[in-house]
Design a protein around this nucleic acid. Structure first.
Length: 720
DNA sequence: TTAGCTGCAGTTTTT
DNA sequence: CTGCAGCTAA
């Protein structure tokens, strides 16, 4: 511990702001501070609260606190959780004060989208003029500002604003009727609850006498209010953050919250952590130089004892394909010195992962991708989840609409519309409308089907009371005929869906192992699932990590590649002429650079495909901001796919043909063939397109799911 | 009511 | 190039 860190740990009473630079050991400080509170100050564990933004951060903090506190029972009683899951716990107890059911559902963004689409349709609004995303971001902004529908309408200025505020009101009414909450509601309604029921607030104020907030620069207005309410009584609030790492403005984060902390709490103690324990001097010099170009910031300079260090390498490729190849080549070279899991490739947007991924697949380099194709957003998983949500909360129309005709049971759109109309006319949910199906004016056959569906759901609800989640999932898949329908379909796709459902059961089994059967079991499972992101599924196994720069925050790697450093890509086209947003973009660059411990490799492409068109951009201004003396020479990579043979590489002499590349040109593949891949294991070919060297195979792998590979170069073996 | 086709519009980052 | 919405045919 250095002097500042020790100070931060021992300053336990009153407001405390810790300005913690990247890699300055802030988690270490927080965990030790909690341990100090318990051990030295005799604070009971249930009086301590620590809030993070991500599940991963919460989990890590929990683990580290457990190591510091000898008594696991005690450590268990400290609340360490994300904003959102903390609010779920609070609302689960007392949301009925606000008129919602305690068995409320949590909407994911897809669900939100369908609610908005429904409203737009009802109001005959053109979705091209008023994109659902625009409307949703309007609503999210309002909720983050704690403005309700009514107020929004009265404050609206101009036509669009007026319209959106009306939609907001509709949206909120629908959610209320369905006892459904979106992510922003979790925060907003918790605040509403505290304001409406002072006794509830009082309970939590007394409960949480020592409050810690991680990544404080990322809090939005609602979260800021929430923290202030909770800490209002004892004022023992410790916030940690780094204004240079504020990269979530688009999501409502307000950097002023951290910058004005001293105004909010004039008696606040401020501690700066500038000692970096992660990166070499070279890396920090680069990062400091880049961030120094931001004008609206508090000056701060990270220092390190790791003097010198490897020079920064740069790559200039002539296409995004070539960029992938060169990254691949350097990864293989560096793999002599580092293991794959020590390396990461960072990019601005998820769509950029494709080229990198292709190169890695071809080169048989193990990698793990964060984000991108989301397991939980697959159709079959969403269907199953919808069944579970309806069992938990029958008023959840969004989920109910999804399952009412899944699998197909002859309930058409007309019937659904009538049920919805009947429901909204009588102020009831669709499920309640179903119970009154006789009066809705739908065909007799549909009524019979609906009665059967209702019986089945009732039955499943009974079962849910004594079954584990895994058992319940099995029952759902059986009783609803979902599995049957898939088995009957018997296509490559349906088989892959069945496998995904099997895969899902490993998640439920894990949950069942950690949780006893209780009345809260299904609720807890569903809220856990709603709040996990794909960020959390980053496993610790080996492989190069591929992810967005945003997702990389809080992580560190020995070697970091940053790709796509071109104007228009990074900084993104959309922010280039807005000074504030440009500064945010620069902070993102700062975050990316400071992830590296030993070695940075910065890459750009001369031209790349964007929406099928080839575009050229000059190199990113952020590259120009790095002092030349920190940078090694540049590697130039020519796109080999443009020459006749992919092995005939032009360019540099030192480049060797990667030996792992295989040549399948003698083998013919056809749809349905079973194959074995060096990394992905067994799979089956579902589609073939293209000719010659660019012939591609779509393969559904048993373990890894669907992938697209180049027929001639993927390390494949035909089976049987 | 459903499946299949065609045309169209869209790409930032996420708890 | 891709996913989605809306249309048409069965």
């Amino acid at each position: 511990m250095n002097k500042e860190q020790r100070q931060a740990i021992k300053h336990t009473e009153g407001p405390l702001l810790i300005m913690a630079g990247a890699g300055s050991g802030k988690t270490r400080v927080l965990t030790h501070r909690i341990a100090y509170l318990l051990a030295e100050k005799g604070v009971p564990p249930y009086n301590v609260l620590a809030i993070t933004f991500t599940n991963k951060a919460a989990r890590e903090m929990k683990e580290r606190v457990h190591k510091l506190i000898p008594d696991p029972e005690k450590a268990e009683r400290i609340w360490i959780s994300t904003f959102h899951s903390m609010c779920v716990r609070i609302l689960r107890r007392d949301i009925n004060y606000l008129g919602y059911e305690n068995s409320f559902s949590i909407l994911d963004p897809t669900d939100q989208n369908s609610v908005i689409k429904g409203i737009l349709k009802n109001r005959n609004i053109d979705t091209k003029q008023h994109h659902p995303r625009k409307v949703l971001s309007y609503i999210s902004d309002k909720k983050n500002e704690l403005i309700d529908g009514k107020t929004a309408i009265s404050e609206a200025a101009g036509f669009t604003d007026g319209l959106y505020s009306e939609i907001y009101k509709d949206y909120q009414e629908i959610l209320y009727r369905n006892s459904s909450l979106d992510f922003d509601d979790l925060i907003m309604l918790t605040i509403e609850l505290f304001k409406k029921e002072p006794a509830v607030l009082d309970y939590y104020q007394n409960r949480f006498q020592y409050i810690h907030v991680d990544e404080y620069q990322d809090t939005n207005h609602a979260q800021y209010e929430l923290v202030n309410l909770l800490s209002g009584k004892y004022r023992n609030i410790c916030v940690v953050g780094d204004s240079d790492q504020s990269i979530y403005k688009f999501r409502g984060a307000n950097i002023e919250n951290i910058l004005n902390f001293e105004d909010d709490y004039p008696d606040a103690k401020v501690i700066l952590l500038e000692q970096n324990y992660r990166s070499t001097e070279t890396i920090l010099d680069a990062a400091n130089a880049v961030i120094g170009n931001n004008t609206s910031r508090k000056p701060k300079n990270l220092r390190t004892e790791r003097k010198g260090g490897k020079k920064i390498k740069t790559i200039l490729a002539d296409s995004e394909r070539a960029e992938g190849q060169e990254v691949l080549r350097q990864v293989m070279e560096l793999s002599k010195e580092y293991s794959y899991s020590d390396m990461a490739v960072l990019y601005r947007a998820n769509s950029q992962s494709r080229a990198i991924e292709d190169a890695f697949v071809k080169g048989s380099i193990p990698y793990k991708m964060v984000g991108g194709m989301k397991f939980y957003s697959r159709m079959e998983i969403k269907d199953l989840m919808s069944y579970l949500k309806v069992i938990q909360n029958p008023h959840d129309d969004i989920s109910f609409e999804r399952i009412i005709n899944t699998p197909k049971r002859g309930i058409g759109q007309k019937t659904v519309e009538k049920l919805l109309a009947y429901g909204s006319m009588n102020g009831i949910s669709m499920y309640e409308a179903v119970m009154q199906a006789d009066f809705v004016g739908i065909p007799k056959s549909a009524v019979v089907t609906l009665v059967k569906l209702d019986e089945m759901l009732q039955n499943l609800k009974e079962k849910s009371k004594y079954m584990s989640i895994t058992e319940l999932v099995d029952e759902v898949l059986e009783d609803t005929g979902y599995i049957d329908a898939l088995e009957k379909e018997d296509t490559l796709e349906s088989r892959s869906r069945i496998e995904n459902l099997e895969e899902f059961k490993t998640v439920t089994r894990e949950f069942d192992n950690e949780n006893e059967i209780s009345d809260d079991l299904l609720f807890n499972f569903l809220s856990d699932m709603a709040l996990v992101s794909d960020q959390d599924s980053v496993e610790a196994d080996s492989g190069v990590t591929l992810m967005t720069m945003h997702a990389s925050k809080g992580l560190e790697f020995k070697v970091v590649f940053v790709v796509g450093l071109e104007e228009g890509i990074f900084p993104s086209q959309r922010v280039m002429y807005d000074e504030d947003e440009l500064e945010e973009e620069r902070r993102l660059m700062y975050v990316a650079l400071t992830r590296a411990e030993d070695q940075l490799i910065l890459s750009r492409a001369d031209s790349r495909m964007i929406y099928g068109k080839t575009e050229s951009n000059v190199q990113s201004r952020f590259l120009n901001e790095i002092p030349a003396e920190l940078v090694d020479g540049e590697v130039v990579e020519i796109d080999s796919s443009k020459s006749k043979s992919p092995f005939q590489k032009s360019g540099r002499a030192h480049r060797r043909t990667p030996t792992v590349l295989t040549d399948n040109s003698g083998v013919t593949f056809k749809v349905g063939d079973k194959v074995a891949h060096k990394k992905f294991g067994d799979g089956i070919i579902s589609n073939i397109k293209g000719e010659g060297d660019s012939k591609e195979l779509d393969i559904i792998f048993t373990k890894e799911g669907p992938k697209r590979l180049l027929a001639n170069f993927a390390p494949l073996e035909k089976k049987e």
